[in-house]
């Protein structure tokens, strides 16, 4: 049985005349963690952003090929972008809570999908619990999100993303601006969350990829060089380029 939630074939992405991603074929199985690694500018973030069409916001971006989410082409005209993004949540490199209370940050999206106060209370609590933040903030839900530490803010952003019960979570270097302790908390969280969500994480930190992902994809200059089981990737990569990168010969 086919267990893949996203199937990409022959995907290329262009910024104006520049090709940022070259003919990538990749699939993502349900309830797994996939890590994207590669040197800066290799296209891994660009590719991640094409999965929830955040690239649409950049003028002159063009995507060719096919990205299927549950067998549906996400670039077809029948797809509503806001509905797609509801299914494919995203957490950014820098924590970006709204200038609202902790509660309102999480209730923000469910609110305009018509959830009532009582449901909202439940969503806020369960999302915060899943993001392992509930105990730290339950007494100050109506205080500003900016009173939280950077690591807490990032977990709040994760809670905010899962409040919509997405199928997929895209994490774009979520720990790049965090201290080691906060990073560890987020990593534990990712492993926890994969029970329910399919997670794709871009990371600069090879150890992080090794610690938390099931499979790893190595991008280099817009090409997907290798995509395989994480354990295999870090012990017996099949490509010379991959081996050079993970052993620190370039990057």
């Amino acid at each position: 049985m086919n267990n893949n939630i996203i199937e990409c074939s022959d995907v290329s992405i262009y910024y104006g005349p520049t090709q940022a991603i070259r003919n990538v074929d990749i699939t993502f199985p349900k309830s797994s963690v996939t890590a994207f690694i590669g040197p800066s500018g290799c296209g891994k973030s660009t590719f991640l952003r094409s999965l929830n069409r955040m690239n649409d916001l950049i003028p002159n971006t063009r995507v060719t090929g096919e990205i299927l989410l549950d067998k549906e082409d996400i670039y077809s005209d029948a797809i509503k972008v806001d509905q797609l993004r509801k299914k494919v949540g995203m957490v950014f490199q820098k924590p970006n809570p709204f200038y609202k209370s902790i509660y309102d940050n999480i209730a923000f999206a469910p609110k305009y999908y018509g959830k009532k106060k009582k449901e909202l209370d439940e969503i806020v609590e369960s999302s915060l619990r899943k993001a392992a933040l509930w105990d730290e903030v339950k007494d100050r839900l109506h205080k500003s999100a900016y009173a939280l530490s950077g690591g807490q803010q990032q977990r709040l952003c994760i809670a905010r993303a899962i409040a919509l019960k997405p199928d997929i979570l895209l994490l774009d270097e979520p720990t790049a601006s965090l201290d080691p302790l906060s990073t560890q908390k987020i990593e534990n969280l990712v492993v926890e969350l994969k029970q329910e969500y399919t997670i794709i994480i871009v990371t600069h930190n090879l150890h992080q990829a090794a610690r938390i992902s099931d499979s790893t994809a190595f991008f280099y200059m817009g090409n997907l060089i290798e995509h395989t089981e994480t354990k295999k990737m870090f012990t017996k990569p099949s490509q010379k380029k991959t081996e050079d990168y993970i052993t620190g010969r370039f990057g």
Binding site: D82, Q83, L84, F92, F98, A109, A161
Partner: peptide, 8 residues
């Protein structure tokens, strides 16, 4: 971006 990524 945060808002758009939440499907707003």
């Amino acid at each position: 971006n945060a808002s758009l990524a939440l499907g707003a």
